[in-house]
Design a protein around this nucleic acid. Structure first.
Lengths: 106, 106
DNA sequence: ACATTATATCGTAATATTACGATATAATTA
DNA sequence: TAATTATATCGTAATATTACGATATAATGT
C-alpha cells in the first residue's frame, strides 16, 4: 500500500517520527546544519551552498516548515529562515529522552 | 526522479540521515521503544504488540538492522532482537551534538 | 519423518519522496 | 512601468516506502 497507519500509534510516536524525518535526508541535515552554524536567521542563500536545484531545496524547506522545525519569514524579496526554537527544544527533548532511556542489557 | 544524491553530501550528513531514518516512522519508534523498555534482548513478540502484519514488522526490523541500530541473533527457532549498543551510542552522539549546537539567535 | 512455530522473503498495489526544469509570484530596483 | 531577484509552485519522471497476503525457510518438538 504505502500509507503509514498513523492511527494505530500514539501521538508521541507519531510526533517523534515527524521530527526525526527532519533529519532523515542528507539535504535536510545540510540545511539544518547551515542554519544552526549561521547563528542567525539567514536569507535563502542555500541555493549557492548545496549542489541541488533551487526547486529541490525549496521543497526540502517546505517539508522542514511543515514539520515545524524551521520558520520562514518574508523580508522584502527574500525569506529569513530560522530554527524554530520551541519545536527544536521539543524535538531535542523527545529524541534525547528516548536515546537516554536505553540501558545496556546483554 | 526520487533518488537521493548521497554523493554530494558528506559522510557525517549521510550517516546522520541514516540513523534518523530509524526513528522516522512511528512503527519503528514503537519497535525501538519496546526494545529499550524491555531492557533485554527480546524474541520477536512484537507481532502481538503492534497492530501490523507480521511481514510488515519483519520489514521494519530488516530496515533497522540495515541501519545498524539493532541486531538480530538466532536463538533456536526465534530471533533475539537487541539494540546495537555501539551504533546507538554513535547515533545518540551525532544527533545530540547537532541538537546541542543550536544557539538561539533571533 | 512430520507437524509446529517463528521469522523471512516474494509479489504486488498504493502511496510518498526526491529531483529537476519550467513557470508563477511577489517585492525591489531602475 | 519594466527589469531584476528571490522564492514557490506545477508538472512530471524515477525511485523508495509502506503494507499485506502468500509462501518459503529453518529450528524444535512429537
Amino acid at each position: 500500500m504505502g500509507i503509514t497507519k498513523a492511527e494505530v500509534f500514539n501521538d508521541q510516536q507519531n510526533k517523534m517520527a515527524r521530527y526525526a524525518k527532519a533529519f532523515a535526508h542528507p539535504a535536510r541535515v545540510a540545511i539544518i546544519e547551515y542554519l544552526v552554524k549561521a547563528e542567525a536567521c539567514i536569507c535563502g542563500d542555500l541555493v549557492g551552498e548545496l549542489p541541488l536545484a533551487q526547486s529541490t531545496i525549496s521543497q526540502h524547506l517546505k517539508e522542514l516548515k511543515n514539520i515545524g522545525i524551521i520558520t520562514g519569514e518574508i523580508e522584502g524579496p527574500r525569506i529569513n529562515y530560522c530554527i524554530n526554537e520551541k519545536a527544536w527544544a521539543e524535538a531535542r527533548s523527545m529524541l534525547g529522552k528516548l536515546m537516554d532511556s536505553y540501558k545496556k542489557c546483554c
